[in-house]
Design a protein around this nucleic acid. Structure first.
Lengths: 337, 337
DNA sequence: TGATACGATAAAAGCGTTTACAGCGCCGCA
DNA sequence: TGCGGCGCTGTAAACGCTTTTATCGTATCA
């Protein structure tokens, strides 16, 4: 088996308490003793057992991350941000997927079993009072791409402003007046906020947004195709279609082209997210870039900081942070390459 | 704080030993007592502390997963497979990235600190003897998209056969005779195997593969573009280009189109992996589909099984498993839509 | 020179489980 | 009636750490 603290203590001729003090730089230890202990640690390749350490110190040096069970590069990018922040802080990362059956909440289990010091929940359908209860018991939780109010810290891209900029481009630059929407799922705020951006820009210019122009997708492959078909069947075909993410926008383009329509000449299509695929579809997608990696990174940072300041007087942490989005103009809106 | 086993014992009027027996279904407990304990567990919402449990039982119910620090949807798909297998078996998933500096090996730390019962290493640059040592100490390790011999279990897609099928399609169906290659990184076997497939098919047909036709990429965005430029500068321009993954193939297409060349009329381009993007680029990519999710899933299953059979006489586990690949014909090879 | 304080270390008490072992009541059998 | 065995449950020792408390020299001061 691996060397334990006892082995090191024996090897260095000290007690285990001293080894612990040296390893954690706690209290003062005579320089000479410290040197002996360090040598023993090196010689035995000692690494403290994480479980024992967690049990004794009541902290696990582990960050919990819960993500939806969906294959979207968007989430992977968040995972990368979270992972980087965690490992930079010397934390491990424990990942759980939101289970399929809606009743079960895996983040509760992570908490109850004492696995983690803090949690980041990405686009997860949470129970606000449960989350609040966990935070109150000393395990900080930060939400990403989700907002349930109640003073629970939240990191979001500025979906509303991003959508506004995008629609303003369509309306003010290209002069489109009939703009339709393909929504995503509804339990996180992003699709709603993007729709609100669309709605407001149109309203401010006195343009109409008929109910039939709002179709429903689920962010996943295929749903954009079906929604686009419905829109193209409409008597008053939209001049531009705003899909709530790039995947659906890419599918919408395919759907239009399958009918022999040209994008953007017959109908413009724009998306949201700026995933890698966006620049490779034809025509390349005009979309809105979100700082996804950064979102994960900052959320993880906040969660970890909160877990460490737990005892002391903690500074006021932000209730909500919106990160800026950027309009990425390519060709699917009608602009020239 | 959360309820402990003591609270439950007191609440049910039994000893902690009995609570533990009930919770783990070990030994026999009087039905009536069991009922009392179960009620107490329910009423207190008791969940055993994972650390204490791991410390006492010497098993953590946690699977370690190490992936390269790269943003590739390919890896995310593997993560999903591994996660599903782990959670189906009641295991948690601890994720670590291969650190940037080549000297450090995060999987060693996971092992040494007793975090995990088993590990899956994906496309990681490992030290064979270290891995062997860990396995010998009772923590099973399974490699994915990597092979270092030494009886270390390995899951791979059948890269060689996949490449063969792809090249046979180019040569035998389309009649291309000048086929070039854009390689990936070299520390995992996949790029090498794909090149071998290309080489063998050409050789069997008496076709030449000049050294200049083998260019070097790194699987990442951008490198396919540069490699393609070199190929197009060649006096004898290749008729078809085989990129070792789809990302580079997509970039190669862009590079060709930037020169006013038509794909596939002037030069055909094919890739490998069949990532989501492949069907959206223009022309849609002919490529080879790998069972990526399945790769992760099966690797995790094997690792977990091995960790549980540890004590008993374990059946012979496979040294290497190759999963089948499928040719996906789209338009970038010259086939009609 | 003897009481005092202090720096350094050892000893021991948890942390919350699992599990080996002991104990107890009761039944069946000689 | 006495005793071995069995079904059930309590007790206590690990597991490998952290952290509090106790101890022991040694230097300091009156």
């Amino acid at each position: 088996m691996a060397a334990t603290i006892f082995d090191v203590a024996q090897h260095a001729g000290v007690s285990i308490g001293t080894v612990s003090r040296v390893f954690n730089n706690r209290d003062r230890v005579h320089p000479e003793t410290r040197e002996r202990v360090l040598r023993a640690i090196r010689e035995l390749n000692y690494q403290p057992n994480a479980l024992a350490r967690g049990l004794a110190s009541q902290q696990t040096d582990t960050l919990g991350l819960v993500i939806p069970q969906v294959n979207d590069p968007f989430f992977f990018e968040i995972v990368r941000g979270v992972e980087d922040a965690a490992s930079a802080a010397g934390y491990n990362l424990l990942i759980a997927s939101q289970p399929r059956q809606p009743g079960e909440h895996s983040y509760l289990r992570l908490f109850h079993r004492g696995h983690v010091d803090a949690m980041v929940l990405v686009a997860i359908d949470v129970l606000a009072h449960e989350v609040q209860a966990i935070i109150d018991r000393g395990v900080p939780i930060v939400l990403v791409q989700q907002d349930v109010g109640r003073n629970i810290p939240t990191f979001l891209a500025d979906n509303y402003y991003g959508a506004r900029t995008l629609i303003e481009h369509l309306v003010d630059v290209h002069g489109y007046r009939r703009v339709a929407f393909i929504s995503g799922t509804d339990y996180t705020p992003d699709s709603r906020e993007r729709l609100r951006g669309l709605r407001d820009v149109l309203a401010e210019r006195g343009l109409d947004l008929p109910a039939a122009y709002i179709t429903h997708g689920d962010y996943l492959r295929g749903s954009g195709y079906r929604a686009m078909q419905k829109l193209l069947d409409l008597p008053a075909r939209p001049e531009a279609v705003f899909a709530a993410n790039d995947q659906m926008a890419a599918d919408a383009i395919i759907a239009a082209q399958a009918r022999g329509l040209s994008v953007p000449d017959d109908v413009a299509v724009v998306g949201f997210d700026d995933v890698p695929m966006a620049s490779y579809v034809s025509p390349p997608l005009t979309t809105v870039s979100q700082p996804v990696y950064e979102l994960g990174w900052q959320a993880a940072r906040l969660a970890l900081e909160a877990s460490r300041e737990d005892a002391g007087a903690r500074p006021i942490t932000p209730r909500m942070v919106q990160l800026p989005t950027t309009l990425v103009v390519r060709r699917s809106c009608g602009c020239a390459g």
